[in-house]
Amino acid sequence: MSLLPFCEWLASTPGSIALHESLYAYSVVESIHVLTLTLFAGLAVMLDLRLLGIAMRDTPVSEVADRLFPWTLAGFIVMVITGALLFYGIPVRTYQNMFFRIKVLLLILAGLNVFVFHTKVNRKRAEWDLDPVPPRRARIAGGVSLFLWALIVVAGRMIAYNW
């Protein structure tokens, strides 16, 4: 089954129609999605800034990463659920939207960055945990993450404009 027929089928399901036609549900889901940005992206940005060595320099990287992780994860879960619902309500148009496709691509890249960070950079964290400015590799990971999330925010906002 290719993706477009799948999206068309999805659009014909009762749940999708209900979400699409509801007066408030879609706006509420959208609002939760946007406002959770503060929790997910906000705390991710704080960690990235620590990795770049420009914020919280006196706090160990591990403290920032580990203490904020449950909150960032919670934010991420809410983002995924509400994001999936937003897609579910308008599957065909979203699938065909260029910014949606760009966003998916950027999300994959952001995921890869997290993977590389955890497998390569974060393993030797004990060596630079207390450094005010972490080593170059960690700074690159933080910078790449910051850049990608900024683009993801832009792409996400643009999906709603039906150009």
Partner: peptide, 29 residues
């Protein structure tokens, strides 16, 4: 979009302080 990027940063800054005050954040600092 830029306003939303600002939202992420202000959200992070506000949450960092308030999570700490609630005892759910950087409690060792």
């Amino acid at each position: 979009s830029f306003h939303l990027m600002g939202l992420a940063v202000i959200g992070g800054a506000v949450l960092m302080v308030n999570l700490r005050l609630l005892g759910f954040g950087l409690n060792r600092q």
